[in-house]
Write a protein that binds this DNA or RNA. Sequence first.
DNA 1: TACGTAAGTATCGTTGCGGAAACCAGGGTG
DNA 2: CACCCTGGTTTCCGCAACGATACTTACGTA
Lengths: 114, 114
Amino acid sequence: MFSGCEEVSVPVRIGDKWTGKILVCLKDGKRRFSELQVPLQGVTPKVLTESLRAMERDGFLLRHAHPEVPPRVEYEITDLGRTLLELMETTCDWTAAHLTELLQARRAYQERAV
Amino acid sequence: MFSGCEEVSVPVRIGDKWTGKILVCLKDGKRRFSELQVPLQGVTPKVLTESLRAMERDGFLLRHAHPEVPPRVEYEITDLGRTLLELMETTCDWTAAHLTELLQARRAYQERAV
DNA sequence: TACGTAAGTATCGTTGCGGAAACCAGGGTG
DNA sequence: CACCCTGGTTTCCGCAACGATACTTACGTA
C-alpha cells in the first residue's frame, strides 16, 4: 500500500499492493469477496485471491466459507490485522506530514539536473 | 527494508531493498560509497548507486562529490531522512512485537492445509 | 610505460509481482 | 436444456527490481 498518495510513487509501502486497502475495507466489519472488489477498483480476482490468501496465512484476517451454492465467503479482520492497520496509519501520517517536502526535493533535484 | 527479520519474509517494508540499511549506515555520520558497500554485504555497485540516487532525489540524503582523483564521494543523511529512519524503527518495533504471532499463524495455516 | 584506485557505467540475465482474459463448479431458474 | 450466480482457478504476458560481470576515467606512482 502506498500510503496516502496514489499519484506519486512514495517509498513507503506495507505488504503487497492491496494489503493496506483490504484492511481498511475490513475495518468496519466482515466483507464478501465481491464486496471487496468494488472499493478496490481494478483489482483482478486472481490478485485479490492471492492477497487474501497471504493475509489469511499470516493471521491478518479470517476466511469464513459458507458451504452454499452459489458460494458465499466472508473475510474478517483479526486483532493482529488491526495492529498492522494501526501501523499503516502511522505511515500514512508520515507521508501526509512529509510528502510536500519530498516533492519539493524532487523538483529541486530536477532543476539541478537541467 | 524488511524490518528486523531477514530470514522470514514479512510484509512490512519501506522503500526498496536497501533504503533502510543505507539510512542506518548513515545514522552516525557521513559515509563514502565504498564504506557503504562493506556493511551492505552483497550489494552490487549498480544497485547501490540506484538506491542512493533515488534517495538523493527524494531528499533523504545529500551527495558530496569531491573533485579529486581517485574520486571521493560522501553521503550524508538529511533531516527528512531521519524522519524516515524513525518511521522505519517504528515498523521494526511492530515486527519485533508481532513476528512470533505471525509465524504461529503461518504454522497453524500449514497444519490446516495438511 | 604500466598499474592501482574510487566511484561509478554498461550490458545482460533472472525473478517475481501484477494484470488480462478465459475457464470452472454446481445448484437454482426459465 | 441452457443460462445465471459467486468465488474462484488457469494460462499467458509485461514490467520493474535485483543481480553478475566487465568496463571506464584520470591522475599519482613505481
